[in-house]
Design a protein around this nucleic acid. Sequence first.
DNA 1: TATCAGTTTAGAATGATTCTAAAGTGTTGA
DNA 2: TCAACACTTTAGAATCATTCTAAACTGATA
Lengths: 130, 130
Amino acid sequence: MNDIKQFLRSNSLRPTKQRIVIAGYLFDGTDKHITAESLSTELTKRKHIISLATIYNTLHDFYENGLLKKLILSSDRVYFDTNTDDHHHFYSEKDQFLIDINKNIKVNGLPKTPKNKKINKIEVIVHLDK
Amino acid sequence: MNDIKQFLRSNSLRPTKQRIVIAGYLFDGTDKHITAESLSTELTKRKHIISLATIYNTLHDFYENGLLKKLILSSDRVYFDTNTDDHHHFYSEKDQFLIDINKNIKVNGLPKTPKNKKINKIEVIVHLDK
DNA sequence: TATCAGTTTAGAATGATTCTAAAGTGTTGA
DNA sequence: TCAACACTTTAGAATCATTCTAAACTGATA
Ligand SMILES: [Mn+2]
Ligand SMILES: [Mn+2]
Ligand SMILES: [Zn+2]
Ligand SMILES: [Zn+2]
């Protein structure tokens, strides 16, 4: 709890009650893939009522500060990933199911990068089912 | 034009005026990445006024029939791709810019597929800028 | 402890997409 | 040829995740 406060402060985030609760849940040592909605549900289960606006604000604050990754996999919800290491995913749209691929994936055979552009990151999504 | 009609029929799509115009534009031999909005703008330029509802309907009909691929890259618009071959993309969110990678990309080092699941497709997105 | 910038929140707004239901059209069998 | 009907188009309403607004609240600081 004081760890969490320090953690937030060290990321230039004021440790408010809401951020402490959310960070406590998100960064408990277990990697998580969540959406604003699923996070809200999870917090409500734990009797922590936090407005959706704050949940969105907090997810963005954490994202802006590099504490979360953003995953765009579906057109109707944004996923956030507590695993900020470089990694990839298995994804089942059908089962709304997302699994980290932490192994060292190598992408071979890329053509040259478009003129005046730099590669920011390479994302591999392994789509399951259909 | 009669080619287009046949093309639509052979894909179990009734060749309506609107579908003929849209297919004529989309499948002119040049690969395209479009959104409902950009397609609408493009058709309007060409003096073909088609309602947005029909544009959405048609894109989905074409997609359902395998004439288009769907690309989820941003949370606020869906891209459709007239290149239905297996391929990957360079993507610049900043410049809303999308380039095909048709070269034979190889993804090495994938772990085993989750139990009871099958790989549907592997998608590589090379994000540019930041 | 007063002050103030930063934060939370209810509720409104946004905007891409989907839905509804009424009018229009391509197909087909007689 | 054309009536009949299933399929399609469309305006406008609805949906819904997300963002915005602006007022109340709170953590940090001196
Ligand atoms: Mn939606
Ligand atoms: Mn949007
Ligand atoms: Zn992950
Ligand atoms: Zn493409």
